[in-house]
Design a protein around this nucleic acid. Structure first.
Lengths: 219, 219
DNA sequence: ATCCCTATTTATAAAAA
DNA sequence: TTTTTTATAAATAGGGA
């Protein structure tokens, strides 16, 4: 516990803004400043109600991103402004042109993952906030959620709904054939039946408007 | 040239990071912090040899961007991503009648209410257990739930679904006007604005109104 | 990579131009 | 809207775990 005498640290040193040669120092600096940059972006967004996106590739090629309300939301909004409309990645089968193409593809994948992770972090954080102070998650204050997290929230509900349906099926099929004796808890079966019969035959593959930044919030 | 006595300024004051109400103060802050953000991005790029892009929309809808080596160069690495927006879900058509038998039960005797509350505690506990160890509630292991808690779980999902629908409608009813791009280069700005004026009006999403007082379990 | 710590360097909130 | 001036709040370089 005893602090050695003298300055335990030299404190912050002044540095010139030019390429850091030492890769280790560069890496540490990148980490720290990237965090700082994202924080600044976040503050700008909160303070001024601005939509902000930051994308950064480290020298090593790793991608990092931050976005409020989300990276995609901001970049989508920006793209049309300078006429960048790359075709969606279809499943082409390009001939073996160069290694460069593959490397680029890998890089883009990294970027995508980074963007998605950034988005999920934000979404999760916001949803968590919407639930703060409440005993159970289903009491979450949906009103507090914004455009960016609603879709995720909705998808989560959908996934759970499917799980519930599946499980209800399981419970039902596990029930022995037309028994003559009623069980203690008929309510559940009733619910399960309702759940199942209420399931419409929709091929559920018709997406109204796939393009544009429009979300279908229907469950 | 004589400076008046006392502090000529209060100096920097501490502020909380939350939406600035006063539009004038917000505007000044946006300007300053945007500049600061771009500077930080520039330094990160120079120091660490990173490719960085920052895009920001002011509350008024004006767009600003910074990029090293260029905004497009960085965003291009994200290009393929935007074609593949997360797929929305197809909508169901909520089912028919069947009003709540459970609801009725909840309004019976005090003893029954008390019993119900006790049951709810158990259900909640079990549902909580089904979520134990998972980072997010939507990862709950529904398979672990039994007959007793499934209905409650389903009802919770339904309530959330309705909340989400309602909120989604609220959000959608407020669609902001198209932005103006503000870049360092005036020529680019001119071009961008030209592109903008050719941009079609924002679409609006139609959502089915939530049905009130209907208690079927389909989600 | 992340967190802690300290001593400094920077970024900025206010106010006025 | 951007700039200047002050006085102070924040970010962060270096070093260690």
């Amino acid at each position: 516990m005893v602090r050695p005498r003298g300055r335990p640290s030299l404190g912050r040193q002044r540095i010139e803004i030019r390429p850091i040669e030492d890769s280790e120092r560069r890496q540490v600096t990148f980490s720290k400043r990237r965090a700082g940059l994202f924080k600044k972006a976040s503050e700008l967004s909160t303070l001024c109600g601005a939509a902000v996106a930051v994308v950064a590739f480290s020298k090593a090629g790793n991608a990092f991103a931050f976005g409020e309300p989300s990276v995609d939301a901001v970049l989508s909004r920006f793209a049309p402004l300078h006429g960048a409309a790359p075709a969606p990645a279809g499943g082409d089968d390009p001939g073996p042109e160069e290694l460069g193409a593959l490397r680029q593809a890998a890089e883009q994948t990294k970027a995508q993952v980074a963007a998605e992770q950034a988005r999920m972090r934000d979404v999760a954080e916001k949803i968590a906030r919407a639930q703060a102070g409440r005993q159970f998650w289903w009491e979450a204050d949906v009103e507090a959620l914004g455009e960016a997290e609603l879709p995720e929230f909705a998808r989560a509900l959908e996934r759970l709904r499917d799980s519930v349906r599946r499980h209800a099926n399981t419970l039902l099929s596990a029930t022995p054939p037309p028994p003559q004796l009623q069980l203690q808890a008929p309510s559940v079966r009733r619910h399960a039946n309702t759940l199942l019969s209420a399931t419409p035959p929709p091929p559920q593959l018709q997406l109204p408007a796939p393009e544009l930044n429009v979300w279908d919030y229907s469950l």
